[in-house]
Amino acid sequence: MKLSSGAIRLVIPAASLAVLLAAVFYMQPRAMSYTGLNLLFNLAVPIALATIAQMLIMSVNDLDLSMGTFVSFTACVTATFLQSSPAIGILILAGAIAAYAALGVIIHVRQLPSIVVTLGMSFVWGGLAVLLLPSPGGAAPGWVRWIMTAKPPLVPVAIVASVIIAASTHLLVMRSSLGVLIRGVGGNQRSVERAGWSIVWLRAAAYAMAGFFAVLAGIALVGLTTSADANIALRYTLLSIAGVILGGGEFVGGRVSPIGAVIGALTLTLAGSFLSFMRISPDWQIGAQGAILIVVLALRLFLNRLEKREKNR
């Protein structure tokens, strides 16, 4: 059997999700229901969106350390302006996306390390969020709440949303012309440049799309929590990076997978529920996420070695 490296990269995350899900169902058969599944995966939607955003940045070999504060900021905007005066809210969010595109340009033009620039931006977004909502509050706009609590027939909304996110970003990143060029920048910037493309524009586009998905993450989060605060999504920086890696993405070389990223986000969310079903104290939840990350990475290394040996033979 000959598998492409892309398929191999998807096998491990899909398998780990399946194993985890089977374990959860085994221990808590009631989870195998409409409401059960919705509860299990509800919080995965914003995390999946943030993971996609992080993945877009990683596809051009950069890293965004401000993802958590940025999602918190957009959540605050959603719970305040987007709810009270939608026009201004949309304007602010559009501005935030433009700011992301500008970041992409600055990082490329000045050849700056993305880690430090986004580190600085994380303070800026955090500050803006605190200015908007000094204490927890605000309210979710009605339509957001409606979408996030919708009850489609047969399949709960969290699953439907995850599938839609995975499918649409797969089309955007893996199938479209723009997606190919962006990943090309990550794979071999020099040859893309030699073929006559503008690297600055491609990077700006990648960053803008990342900003767009991060905005969606903030909106979805508020739809679930109904209110926001400035620290609501701080965990998302680390979770989104972990999600991309879990889903088979790599830090360099433009090797990313949107479907994998969504699966990675689902796995991370499920890990928490799994442990609580195992009656392991919630103390170990974060630790388990770390352990899963390490196990998956070790598995992937093992598979890569195997594949290499196969090739050399």
Binding site: S177, V180, R183, G187, N188, A195, W197, G254, R255
Partner: peptide
């Protein structure tokens, strides 16, 4: 070699030929 290793063969053709629209 100057292909993008992370892209498929057809996608590399897309990168090299900008008139493939």
């Amino acid at each position: 070699l100057s292909l993008c290793p992370n892209l498929t063969v057809a996608e590399n053709a897309r990168v090299m030929h900008s008139d493939l629209t």
